[in-house]
C-alpha cells in the first residue's frame, strides 16, 4: 500500500458516495446514466468474486463490500425508488457494443484461462469503458450538474492515481500487471477531455455546458 493507491481508493469511494448522496438528497437521478451504473455494478460483481475464495486484509474485504453495496444501492435508486426521475431517453448508449467486445477480449487476452480469472479480466476491461454511457449522455444533453462533474472528477482521478501506484510498484516492488495497466491507461485517457472542461469551467464556478 502506497500513498497513490490509498488516495486512489479514497477518491473512488468519494465518487461513489457523492453520487449516492446526490441522488438521495435531491430525490432525483436526472442527468445520471443508469446504464453506466449497471455496468459498474457488473464490474464489482465479477471482480470481487474472490471474496469467497481468498482473504487479503480487513481493509480489502471492507472496501470491496462497500463498493458492491453502494453500486447496487445506486442502481436500485435509479431504476426503482426514483425511477420517475430517470432520463431514459437521453441514456441511449448501446451497452451491448461495450459488453460483447469486452467479453470476447477477456476470453482472448487474460493471464490464465480459468473462470475466475476471465471474470476478473472482464471486469478490468469493462471498468475502463463503463463511464462511456454517462459521458455520452452529457454530450447528448450538452450539460451536467456541478455535483455530477465532481463525481466524474473523483472517478477519473481514482484511476489516474492508480497509474502512479503502478509506476511506484514497478520501481519499488518490481511488480506490474500489463492487463491492469493498459486498461487503466485507456480508462484515464477517456476522462482527459472531461478533466479539461472540469478545470477550465467547473473550478472557475461555471456550470459544465457544451457548445451546441
Amino acid at each position: 500500500m502506497n500513498i497513490f493507491r490509498l488516495t486512489g481508493d479514497l477518491s473512488h469511494l468519494a465518487a461513489i458516495i457523492i453520487l449516492l448522496l446526490k441522488i438521495w438528497k435531491s430525490r432525483s437521478c436526472a442527468g445520471i446514466s443508469g446504464k453506466s451504473q449497471i455496468l459498474f455494478a457488473l464490474v464489482f460483481t465479477t471482480r470481487y468474486l474472490d471474496l469467497f475464495t481468498s482473504f487479503i486484509s480487513l481493509y480489502n474485504t471492507c472496501m470491496k463490500l462497500i463498493y458492491i453495496g453502494c453500486a447496487y444501492a445506486t442502481v436500485y435508486l435509479i431504476y426503482a425508488k426514483f425511477r420517475a426521475t430517470y432520463d431514459g431517453n437521453h441514456d441511449s448508449f448501446r451497452v451491448e457494443f461495450l459488453v460483447v467486445p469486452v467479453g470476447g477480449l477477456s476470453v482472448l487476452i487474460n493471464h490464465d484461462f480459468s473462470p475466475l480469472e476471465i471474470l476478473w479480466t472482464f471486469s478490468i476491461y469493462l471498468e475502463s469503458v463503463a463511464i462511456l454511457p454517462q459521458l455520452f449522455m452529457i454530450s447528448k444533453t450538452g450539460e451536467a450538474e456541478t455535483i455530477t462533474t465532481h463525481y466524474l472528477f473523483c472517478l477519473g482521478l481514482y484511476r489516474a492515481l492508480y497509474l502512479f501506484n503502478w509506476i511506484w510498484r514497478f520501481y519499488f516492488e518490481g511488480f506490474f500487471d500489463m492487463i491492469a495497466i493498459v486498461a487503466g491507461v485507456v480508462q484515464t485517457v477517456l476522462y482527459c477531455d472531461f478533466f479539461y472542461l472540469y478545470v477550465t469551467k467547473v473550478l472557475k464556478g461555471k456550470k459544465l455546458s457544451l457548445p451546441a
Binding site: H12, I56, S57, K64, H111, E173, F176, M178
Partner: peptide
C-alpha cells in the same frame, strides 16, 4: 506475471 499481487488492489 505476479497475478497474486494484483488481487490486493481494488
Amino acid at each position: 506475471c505476479h497475478r497474486t499481487n494484483v488481487k490486493d488492489e481494488l
